[in-house]
């Protein structure tokens, strides 16, 4: 049993981690790097005009030319930062994969067979609980965003993930209205309590970039979780218990 759990989790984690890393490096990292330029004060946006302050010693591009190019990493090389991103992304995917596969194990104990096909649905349910539900209150943020104290946000995030997981499970496996109602209540509860927000917003990163980042981030996560479920379910179904 342990072998089946571990091999399924490793397959799902490394498979989804690879895809997640490619998507993150090509779609999300450029936005993070550019946001850090606003964070450091090298760029700032005001009255809808992109301006650059005190050109860097090693950068003589004009503001317009610069805006059209991917932002250069100030201290760390692109390759080094990408390698770090690939590694940390794969680790995160492995963490998700081990939990998801443990849930496959619980499902098996209840006589539910997980396959590659149904694995995609399991993965998307994980996406709903771990990414989508917290995003409703605390959308993914670029660096330098205005936000409430970190610990309050972490607590709300954790509570939301736990309540949403229980809520989705109650709706998916409940057989009567009492359980479905409880599931809906659990899904709604974190948002009725409300996510912690700062008293006032005053981030230095342009809201257009922020919006693009949120959309891309949630999209990349949806793909990653679907792949996580697909690979995990595929390996799971191939092996004897």
């Amino acid at each position: 049993m342990l072998k089946k759990l571990i091999t399924s989790a490793l397959t799902a984690g490394f498979g989804a981690g690879l895809i997640m890393a490619v998507l993150q490096i090509t779609l999300l990292s450029p936005l993070i790097l550019e946001a850090e330029e606003y964070e450091s004060g090298r760029k700032f946006h005001y009255a809808g005009v992109v301006q650059e302050v005190a050109p860097d010693h090693n950068d003589s591009h004009s503001a317009m030319a610069h805006a059209a190019e991917p932002a250069p990493a100030p201290a760390e090389s692109w390759a080094s930062r990408s390698a770090r991103t690939a590694l940390s992304t794969t680790l995160t995917a492995l963490g998700y994969a081990f939990v998801l596969v443990a849930v496959f194990g619980l499902a098996a104990r209840s006589g539910i067979k997980v396959t590659a096909r149904s694995g995609i649905l399991w993965g998307l349910a994980g996406f709903g609980a771990v990414i989508l539900a917290p995003s409703l209150g605390l959308p993914p943020e670029l660096p330098a965003s205005a936000a409430a104290p970190l610990q309050e946000r972490q607590l709300w995030w954790l509570g939301t993930v736990v309540a949403s997981t229980a809520g989705i499970a109650a709706i998916a496996f409940g057989k009567n209205w009492a359980l479905w109602g409880a599931g809906i209540a659990l899904l709604a509860l974190p948002h009725i309590i409300g996510a912690p927000h700062p008293a006032a917003f005053g981030g230095v990163v342009p809201p257009e970039m922020q919006g693009e980042f949120v959309g891309l981030s949630i999209g990349v996560s949806a793909i990653s979780w679907a792949v996580l479920g697909l690979f995990g379910g595929y390996m799971w179904a191939r092996q004897e218990p």
């Binding site: 999300l28 990292s29 993070i32 970190l150």
Partner: peptide, 14 residues
């Protein structure tokens, strides 16, 4: 080390 991934996957960061 995890900074970029925390931002990209929606973990509360900073």
């Amino acid at each position: 080390f995890e900074h970029d991934t925390r931002h990209a996957t929606g973990f509360p960061c900073h």
